[in-house]
Design a protein around this nucleic acid. Sequence first.
DNA 1: GCCTAAGTACACAGGTCTGTGTAACCAAAA
DNA 2: TTTTGGTTACACAGACCTGTGTACTTAGGC
Lengths: 221, 221
Amino acid sequence: MYLGYKGPVLSSEQDARYRMAPPPAPQTMKERILETADKLFYLQGIRAIGVDTIAAEIGISKRTLYNHFPSKNALIAAYLERRFVHARASDKPPAEQILATFDSLERRFAAKDFRGCPFVNAVAELGPQDRAVKKIAIAFKESRRVWFRDRLNELGVADAEALATQLVLLVDGSIAQDLVRDDPAMARAAKEAAKVLLRNAGVDVGSDAKKPMKGSKRAPD
Amino acid sequence: MYLGYKGPVLSSEQDARYRMAPPPAPQTMKERILETADKLFYLQGIRAIGVDTIAAEIGISKRTLYNHFPSKNALIAAYLERRFVHARASDKPPAEQILATFDSLERRFAAKDFRGCPFVNAVAELGPQDRAVKKIAIAFKESRRVWFRDRLNELGVADAEALATQLVLLVDGSIAQDLVRDDPAMARAAKEAAKVLLRNAGVDVGSDAKKPMKGSKRAPD
DNA sequence: GCCTAAGTACACAGGTCTGTGTAACCAAAA
DNA sequence: TTTTGGTTACACAGACCTGTGTACTTAGGC
């Protein structure tokens, strides 16, 4: 296979990274297209980016792109599917895992290339007609909710379903707020709220060092 | 001013409504354009709707539209400004007002023409470049947060700022979730979480019986 | 050395979009 | 009646978009 290399395909930092790594990342063409589509779709918006732009960014011809994806819609679908990475379980205690979610959220907010949830954004800009996009967005949201629920069940929380839903509300709320405000503190606010909800459900989330809260309720056993 | 009327400008239900009202709503042309732009932009997406479509929907020429708005961008800005209605205070007790927010949210979710927060959607699809859109979106979000904060201050809550932020997270979270899932129950889940947060801050939000629902609200005084 | 698979360059069809130019038209005010 | 201002119909420029057609080039396997 001839990979006609014609100039700087990778941005300078990426380039440097790959240069010092032993194997220069034997990326398949499809993966290169997807990687670039991901960056542009996510950062600028799906409708805002044409296939020409993607091809030009990689340095390939538009024809090549269409040889790998039959249509832009197919590329959009592949983009979203690639974004759908299932959250992995860790060996840490469940309560810690749950709270760590918000810490990781805060880290992502702080990065300058964060621009909200790709699934919510896609549904927002592609409209209600696009059933395929909506379907994968629903699946993603549900997978996140289920992840919380499973951890809550490990903790023996009574109504894990309801609490899991409330936690995803906090996650999505902080994402939406950060999207417009660019304020990573939204993740911390969500974490504090999550702690209150967890404590209210009888989960031990450590001492409440920073807020002694006057009329605080003791958790029901 | 000649309002060249050329066929059904209003949908049948609207038409009926206006027919039985004494003044047939002396809408200015600008307002008619804005009303239609609002409906189409919000329901289908800003980028998805061209000015031709808006003009055709009203039954006016594209030229007329451009005589009232110098560019599509100006129309978008006017659309968002028109959406920016400040939440009004009522005479109900603050805690009730806060919780009523989530009831009204649930009602809006149940309507089939709800499609998320227009400001968040606009930021999502117009990208980070569009400073004007982002600015008004930030202003809107902040106005909502301040509304919560003021009510919490009336209630004597210690850290009203932080709690207000947490409440808007629940609001925006439920909006995002409903956008992809079409599930009004998200508003109820947010309300339940809000109750827990409020109770944790020392606010009396009534008994924890799942649904006292009617008439069981005792005014605090 | 030849064949094949993959990529390239480039043109182009056909559509949509924003925005403008222009002459005619109509209603109501002067 | 004449003027004036908002409106219409319609054409069009120029950009951009998705997707295709075609002939050429190159690397690697046989």
